[in-house]
Each structure stands twice: as structure tokens, then as C-alpha cells.
């Protein structure tokens, strides 16, 4: 994602809705993409995208250009998406209790099947979605920011407000899990 110009942000801060729409057009793709990969659900990703931009709109006045808009927006996106994941997980647990132990993993996959398989040319994406589901949300956030958004370790650490070695550790575990899922040897 290209960083948004200061001028455009200042216009939006002054309440110019057209300027805010231009910010949305420039950054909604990455917000939605990150939200989709972390939540693994299109409806949830749409909800997250909506929440993120409403948060951005209401907090734009407090944005003081100390960090880049990109980092700020990534942080809001990842946090909102991780919260959505927690909500999904709680709901899945409740459903499991209600159903008397039905395999929630399968139930979750079924619930999201339509969202993942709707897109025709997304065989690879569907496979990736299934693989990403094997990671925990923190690992998922790290690998998505690295592999899809191309953020450096430093940028990921700043976005997630974690130590750079934690970034390394999460990426390593995420990759080991992906390799285990695809049947590749995990090491020595």
C-alpha cells in the first residue's frame, strides 16, 4: 500500500468527506485483504473493513503524523481483525457447547465454505485459506503482513507493537505449521 499524502489526510481531518473517500479507495484493498486473511471469512472481513474505516474517520483528528498513516492503519486493521477472530472463536465455542461436542473445526469450515469458495479463480486462495486456518491468529497476522503486504520485520514489529524477535519466532512457527500441513519435512 502506498502511503497516503499528508495533504489528503489534513483535508479529511478538516471534515472533507471526498478526501476521506479517496483515502478509503487507496487503502481499502489492503485493509480488506489483511482482514480477510486473518478472519478467513468474507462477511467478517467486510465488517472489519467497515469498523476500521469508521475508527479511522473518528480518530483522524488525533492522528499527528508521528508514524506513517500506513503503519497506523495496519495497526487498527490487525487489532480489529484479531478481535473479530476472538469473537468468532467464542461463538464457535458456544456453538460447540450447545451442539454437545460437534466438531467446531468442521462447523467453522462449513460456515465459511461459501465465503471461501465463491471466487472461481481462487483455487489457490481457497487452499491458502485452509492452510492459514491451521495457524493461530497472531501467527496469521505476522505471515499475512510479511507475505501478502510485504512488510519488513521492523514494520511488522511496529505495527503489532511486538519485539522484532517475536516477529521472527511467529514467522518461523507459522512456516513450520504451513509446511506440516502441506506434508513437507519440518527440518533436520
Amino acid at each position: 500500500m502506498e502511503d497516503i499524502s499528508r495533504d489528503l489526510i489534513e483535508q479529511a481531518q478538516a471534515g472533507n468527506i471526498e478526501a476521506f473517500e479517496r483515502i478509503y479507495r487507496a487503502s481499502s484493498g489492503f485493509v480488506y485483504s489483511v482482514a480477510l486473511r486473518i478472519t478467513n471469512s468474507r462477511p467478517e472481513a467486510q465488517e472489519v473493513t467497515q469498523d476500521v474505516f469508521i475508527k479511522i474517520y473518528h480518530n483522524l483528528g488525533n492522528f499527528e503524523f508521528r508514524s506513517s498513516f500506513k503503519t497506523w492503519a495496519y495497526r487498527i486493521t490487525v487489532n480489529t481483525a484479531l478481535n473479530a477472530c476472538k469473537k468468532i472463536s467464542k461463538e464457535a465455542n458456544r456453538r460447540q457447547d450447545f451442539d454437545g461436542g460437534i466438531d467446531t473445526q468442521i462447523a467453522g469450515v462449513d460456515a465459511r465454505k461459501e465465503t471461501v469458495e465463491q471466487d472461481d479463480r481462487e483455487q489457490a486462495q481457497a487452499k491458502l485459506d485452509v492452510l492459514l486456518r491451521s495457524l493461530n491468529p497472531d501467527q496469521r497476522a505476522c505471515i499475512v503482513l510479511r507475505e501478502i503486504e510485504g512488510l519488513s520485520y521492523e514494520e511488522i514489529a511496529r505495527t503489532l507493537r511486538i519485539n522484532i524477535n517475536t516477529v521472527r519466532s511467529r514467522l518461523k512457527r507459522a512456516r513450520l505449521a504451513l509446511m506440516a500441513q502441506t506434508g513437507a519435512s519440518g527440518g533436520e
Binding site: G29, S33, R121, A124, E147, A184
Partner: peptide, 17 residues
């Protein structure tokens, strides 16, 4: 690692809400 943990992401096309 390249084949099974990195190339998976290469075919991902950008998505828009």
C-alpha cells in the same frame, strides 16, 4: 520452505471489498 511456505502466497491476487 520456499515451495510449501512461501510460494503459496505468490498467486494471491489483490482483493477489494
Amino acid at each position: 520452505v520456499r515451495r510449501n511456505a512461501q510460494h503459496l502466497f505468490k498467486d494471491i491476487s489483490p482483493v477489494q471489498p
